[in-house]
């Protein structure tokens, strides 16, 4: 499913949080929205998801508004947001429709995919942060969304779990060719995962640069090529000179 944003903006109480955001995502493309905190990147993602419909401008999935294609969109939040009263399996199948047996077999398959087999009957309180986020990923994937929106999904995790889950996301992307929009403030994460990176800056946030990462996957973390991209991004955000960062 393709995604198109045209001049999208959002104001809260007469104060613009973000404005003039325009980009398109082709089916199967991974787009990164990168920026410092407070630049409105999560606001844009919420507008795309249909959770917030008070935005200006136009957002279209294959020509349709977000509300009309809700079933085709999966959202992974920064926190796992599991229902504490449901078991892991019940959480994963939360958004599924159909008979119980169908839901359970599908849920189990996805739990296996994210490496949580055997934890079906555990409650969220028994999971570690990484396990809970895996369960949340399984919950978002089980409905087979054509578009996956991720709001800093790995930012609360330790470095090793983060890398594992980034690779898990790429595996999923390879299998299902999902269109992905990833909001992040982690430049390494963006250069490792994305086809294109859109940097936002300022208050209200506006688009700064659009950087295409023309590297074949699998990419090597910390490679020279990715470091070049990182430098380019840091320069575009004026973060490479300490003096500039301070003002």
């Amino acid at each position: 499913m393709s995604l198109e944003l045209r001049n999208v903006g959002r104001t809260f109480n007469d104060k613009a949080a973000v404005r003039n955001i325009s980009f398109t995502a082709q089916p199967g493309e991974i787009i990164g929205l990168l920026g410092t905190s407070g630049c409105g990147k999560s606001t844009v993602l919420r507008a795309i998801s249909g959770l917030d419909d008070a935005y200006d401008g136009r957002i279209e999935f294959n020509g349709k508004a977000p509300g009309a294609v809700r079933n085709a969109i999966g959202f992974i939040f920064q926190e796992p947001r599991l229902m504490p009263w449901l078991t892991v399996l019940e959480n994963v199948t939360f958004g599924l429709k159909g008979t119980r047996a169908e839901k359970e077999s599908k849920g189990k398959t996805f739990l296996e995919n994210v490496g949580l087999a055997g934890n079906e009957n555990a409650y969220p309180k028994e999971l570690s942060g990484g396990m809970a986020q895996r369960a949340a990923i399984a919950r978002a994937l089980v409905t087979s969304p054509e578009v996956l929106l991720l709001d800093e999904p790995f930012s609360a995790l330790d470095a090793f779990t983060k890398m594992q889950l980034q690779d898990l996301l790429l595996d999923i992307w390879k299998t299902y060719q999902t269109t992905i929009v990833l909001v992040t403030h982690d430049i390494d994460e963006a250069t490792y995962l994305c086809d294109r990176i859109i940097t936002l800056r300022g208050q209200p946030g506006e688009m700064e640069r659009e950087i295409a990462i023309n590297e074949a996957r699998p990419r090597t973390r910390g490679s020279g090529e990715l470091a070049e991209y990182k430098k380019e991004i840091l320069d575009s955000l004026d973060l490479n000179q300490p003096a500039a960062a301070e003002k």
């Binding site: 998801s49 959770l51 809700r70 079933n71 969109i73 959202f75 939040f77 926190e79 947001r81 229902m83 009263w85 939360f94 958004g95 409905t143």
Partner: peptide, 23 residues
């Protein structure tokens, strides 16, 4: 945040009450 998860899965108000708010 939990209500948002429910809305993301297209629950209507009644389903939201039964499946998220009441528990």
């Amino acid at each position: 945040k939990l209500i948002e998860v429910g809305r993301m899965y297209g629950l209507n108000n009644l389903q939201l009450i039964r499946r998220v708010i009441l528990p």
